[in-house]
Amino acid sequence: EEAIQNFKALLSDMVRSSDVSWSDTRRTLRKDHRWESGSLLEREEKEKLFNEHIEALTK
Rank of each mutant, 00 (worst) to 15 (best):
E1S: 08
E1H: 04
E1M: 09
E1W: 01
E1Q: 07
E2N: 03
I4S: 06
Q5W: 03
N6V: 07
F7Q: 05
K8T: 01
A9C: 06
A9P: 02
A9D: 09
L10A: 06
L10I: 06
L10V: 04
L11W: 00
L11R: 02
L11I: 01
S12T: 13
S12A: 14
D13K: 07
D13Y: 00
M14A: 12
M14K: 13
V15E: 02
V15K: 01
R16N: 09
R16Q: 13
S18R: 07
S18H: 13
S21W: 00
S21K: 11
W22P: 05
W22L: 02
S23A: 12
D24S: 08
T25M: 12
R26W: 15
R26Q: 15
R27T: 07
R27Y: 06
T28I: 14
L29D: 00
L29N: 01
K31E: 11
K31T: 12
K31Q: 13
K31F: 08
R34L: 03
W35V: 03
W35I: 04
S37R: 07
S37K: 12
S37C: 13
S37G: 11
G38C: 15
S39I: 08
S39C: 11
S39F: 11
L40S: 14
L40A: 14
L41E: 03
L41W: 02
L41A: 03
E42F: 06
R43N: 15
E44Y: 06
K46V: 05
E47F: 03
E47R: 09
E47D: 02
F50G: 04
F50T: 03
N51G: 07
E52P: 01
E52I: 02
E52G: 04
H53L: 00
H53I: 00
H53Q: 03
H53F: 01
H53M: 00
I54E: 07
I54F: 00
I54T: 08
E55Y: 09
E55N: 11
E55I: 08
E55T: 12
A56P: 04
A56K: 13
A56V: 09
A56I: 09
L57E: 13
T58S: 13
